[in-house]
């Protein structure tokens, strides 16, 4: 029996190990801040304001916002890890270590995505643990819960990769999170049900992809959602395929990587 490990698999593992080590080495920047931010959200929005709001979508307000806040952490950290790690490697030229190697583009991409997903899920787990101090959590459907959070994390890792490819300076990696990601997340139903909105804005909200991810995850945890779970999966998988295809095409062409 041939026990020699596949070189491509070794290459993939190497990128993942490198990324995980980096995340853990700078844990004070990668893992602690989201825990503190989300604790404040739970205290202020969930506990203080939430008590006055009462219920939302059939759930007490604290329970309602937990899935949204977990997803918000996963999204921002998956995206942030990919964009900062990949752009940092590009900026300092050490991405060349990988580009000169025989690793296929898809494996390089998969390695970085896995690193970003690791951070997204680590932070998601930390935020979920923090939430347990404030409310009782139950999981309605673990498969849906895990698959939605995993797919969402992959999507935003890929989006972070595309941002990193086009970024030329560090300012460029802050623009998308500040002006696109954060507003879309806040307007994606983290803190409210879209049924509270007027008809027109409900229809506008349907163009926000975050809405499907957050509601899909909320369905997995609580069994309630503003949208059908089938639609959520369709949108999520659609985004996944499109972003993965764009990312691989950019790598093949060497956009932002090779002159």
């Amino acid at each position: 029996m041939n026990t020699t490990p596949n070189p491509t698999w070794i290459g993939y593992q190497t990128i993942v190990i490198k990324e995980v080590k980096r995340i853990l080495r700078i844990w004070g920047q990668t893992l602690v801040p989201p825990a503190i931010t989300m604790t404040l959200y739970f205290i202020i929005f969930g506990n203080l304001i939430g008590k006055r709001i009462g219920t939302m979508g059939g759930l007490d307000y604290m329970s309602f916002i937990v899935p949204g806040l977990v997803m918000m952490s996963v999204i921002t950290n998956s995206y942030g890890n990919m964009v900062s790690s990949f752009f940092g490697a590009k900026f300092a030229h050490h991405i060349e270590e990988i580009l000169v190697s025989p690793l296929p583009d898809a494996v390089i991409l998969a390695g970085y995505v896995t690193g970003a997903v690791f951070r997204g899920l680590m932070v998601g787990a930390i935020v979920t643990t923090v939430a347990l101090f404030f409310t009782h959590l139950q999981v309605h459907n673990p498969w849906i819960t895990v698959s939605i959070v995993l797919l969402t994390s992959v999507i935003f890792s890929l989006a972070g990769f595309i941002n990193a490819i086009f970024a030329r300076k560090f300012d460029d990696i802050a623009i998308v999170p500040t002006f696109i990601l954060t507003p879309l997340t806040y307007l994606g139903g983290v803190f409210y049900s879209i049924h509270l909105l007027p008809d027109f804005w409900q229809k506008v909200s349907l163009f926000n992809p975050m809405l499907y991810m957050i509601n899909g995850f909320r369905y997995g945890m609580h069994g309630v959602s503003d949208l059908s779970i089938g639609t959520a999966y369709t949108v999520i998988l659609g985004f996944l395929v499109v972003l993965a295809a764009i990312s691989l095409w950019l790598m093949k062409k060497g956009v932002g990587l090779r002159t």
Partner: peptide, 8 residues
């Protein structure tokens, strides 16, 4: 790590 990228 560099060796790893080359499958070592």
């Amino acid at each position: 790590n560099q060796a790893g990228y080359y499958g070592v």
